[in-house]
Design a protein around this nucleic acid. Structure first.
Lengths: 106, 106
DNA sequence: TTCATACTTGGCAATATGCCCAAATCACCA
DNA sequence: TGGTGATTTGGGCATATTGCCAAGTATGAA
């Protein structure tokens, strides 16, 4: 694999890594419904606000969400809705996997 | 967030984590074209065979690829082609991100 | 059986992640 | 200017990931 190709796969992996965490996945899911500020997400997630803020920073720097400051609050929104289509595929992996496991038991 | 909901997002994240690595991403991309044995993938990737084998084990245990032994070789194939649709979305994140960066420079 | 090839597994060192706490910013208002 | 609420940043610690080497298993041929 040459250098250029390698860099491309690294860039892609970087984006996927950004959503490869339960909390960040939850945030993306939530933001697909409506924009939210950090305090709201912190409530929903139930972790330290600094933790949530760092998760948001990761999502933002990878280009998945965008942020806008309004007053003293920072509102985050999903910038790439096509991510949501992928969730269906993930769900289908979960389904086929558990189906196969059932077959093993049968 | 209740326990059940949390478990769901953890299960999803587990699957996404499985492809959140440049080498595994490359392997998935390659397997979307045709099935391959470990030696072939090792050649293409350019890492130790044990490393590639472990990457394949991760993809397999998450349900993304399946494996079949034929003779002394183990052939891996993509079990969930819908993953490939997601790659287009990842690409669009890359594009919009770099477009935004160009705008910042302008 | 012995040997070679194909692959997997165990183990370890280096590196990266994730979380909380504490401290620093920032916006707004008195 | 001082104070308060919202958010980000720095730091330290625990845990997880990654990659190589070495050793183990499995298949097929001689």
């Amino acid at each position: 694999m040459n250098k250029k190709k390698k860099a491309l796969f690294e860039a892609r992996a970087q984006i996927i890594k950004a959503i490869a965490h339960p909390t960040r996945l939850f945030i993306v899911d939530e933001l697909s419904r409506k924009e939210r500020c950090v305090a709201e997400l912190t409530d929903m997630v139930g972790a330290d606000m600094s933790t949530v803020s760092k998760h948001l920073a990761i999502l933002k720097s990878s280009g998945i969400v965008s942020a806008e400051k309004r007053g003293s609050q920072m509102y985050y929104r999903l910038r790439v809705p096509c991510i949501m289509n992928f969730f269906g595929c993930v769900e289908s992996v979960l389904k086929t996997t558990s189906r196969d496991q059932l077959e093993l038991l049968a």
